[in-house]
Design a protein around this nucleic acid. Structure first.
Lengths: 243, 243
DNA sequence: TAATACATTAATCTCAAAATTAATATAAAA
DNA sequence: TTTTATATTAATTTTGAGATTAATGTATTA
């Protein structure tokens, strides 16, 4: 039928203008990652509506694409969805921050202990490298006293360090689960008006965790992870709406 | 403009044929839950392709609808997605079952301890009730020796019991996370050819967990949860493809 | 025979518009 | 004035079809 003609014309077009490489991500994939990063980085006001039509023009794609992506992000806990009334950025609440911190402690303490037991020298090297990059950034922050200019760099370095704690735990499920929780925690804590979730104690905290890990001291490592994150169980973050 | 005429005609149609109640779930919601339940119950062969066109006619909706739902289920870990080559039922693997069991132990032990510390008499009542229903079904299974006829009933009762263990832990995040893990575990274990994940030791296991919880003996409760689930870390489930 | 290129089919991905519902503004009634 | 009902606008949900890519079959060549 004439379907073949269309396919042929399409192959001619591909020959003339080139085609997308198979390894390239689709539009969906691109937009998904970008939108996720923006949600984690606090690019939207908490509680703000995420209208498909608005994002559609912003990303130059269809509303269906956006809808699929928002559904996925809602399953990742980064977007709230209500039937017939659309998608929203989750509101920041003390309770939610509290629960996310607890879950991080549970997963990172357990995962780190397993990494300490299973990991070899290559894991130690990876962890040391991640810590080096992170502490470099944090010392620059502490010298200038300004988080803002280095917030983006710090975010990726801090995530890398904490993910590496679990890198040798032997369970991809534990790592991916932790990744989801970590992102939600970051979204809850990040606030453009203040410190992006950065604290001055971070330098000593991260160092203590690193040292305990390299010493293969699992109980101490668990304790240091707990101390590092337990701050979020106490402080009120008065700058953030408590709702 | 003439847009209003259409809206008016639509209101006439609603008057004549009735309209969906606001509390009713949308098509999406319905199909999502049904498809999730089927995936957990083992209605599809593991590794089977989930083609949007097939499911579309089955559920009498559009392919976009199915696509959105499959994306959501993929984020829940119940469906595998690959760009440009669609959705599949996850294959059953020993590694995955192992990791899911480990995560269940971690979450249920921790969650149960917190429930023991926080829960009141109403939680005890709920747990006792859930166990009563479960043990009733399990004793019937053990007397007949046939799991099949009661598999569906047992599945919901077992989930209810294990969810109730965390019901008073004070963290909705921990409960929802556990729910996701539990469903994936069930999907991995369920196999229509064998026992749906049921074991004869379940009766004494569940009873031991209940007793420890009612005794407010957190360490013992943790141990019993571990013993109950650790079976999945040892046995090979030779009946299931190990891949 | 095996491997490669091409033709064909079948799937996935993208899109825009129609169908349906929610939200808002306005008028009528209490 | 307050409330309620109605008209209007704006959003979400659903659909089907076109665009693009993957998978399969067939012929050609080494």
């Amino acid at each position: 039928m004439y379907y073949l003609i269309i396919l042929y014309l399409y192959s001619v077009k591909q020959y003339l203008f080139g085609k997308r490489a198979m390894s390239d991500p689709t539009v969906e994939f691109d937009v998904f990652n970008n939108l996720r990063d923006r949600l984690i980085a606090g690019a939207f006001e908490h509680g703000a509506k995420l209208r498909a039509e608005v994002l559609r023009v912003e990303y130059d794609c269809s509303a269906s694409n956006i809808r699929e992506i928002l559904f996925r992000l809602s399953m990742a806990g980064l977007v709230d969805f209500q039937e017939q009334r659309g998608f929203r950025v989750p509101v920041q609440s003390k309770t939610r921050r509290h629960e996310l911190a607890e879950m991080r402690i549970l997963l990172e303490a357990e995962g780190l202990e397993r990494s300490i037991n299973n990991g070899g020298v290559e894991w130690e090297a990876r962890l040391t490298g991640a810590h080096h990059k992170l502490s470099h950034i944090e010392s620059r922050i502490s010298s200038t006293g300004e988080v803002e200019p280095l917030a983006a760099l710090w975010s990726v370095a801090e995530k890398e360090f904490h993910q590496t704690l679990l890198a040798a735990c032997g369970s991809t499920l534990m790592q991916t689960t932790h990744g989801l929780i970590y992102d939600q925690f970051r979204q809850q804590v990040v606030n453009a008006k203040t410190n992006y979730g950065y604290y001055s104690d971070n330098i000593v905290d991260h160092k203590a965790i690193l040292d305990a890990a390299l010493d293969r001291n699992a109980p101490l490592a668990r304790q240091k992870v707990h101390e590092h994150l337990a701050r979020n169980l106490r402080e009120n973050h008065a700058d953030i709406d408590t709702k």
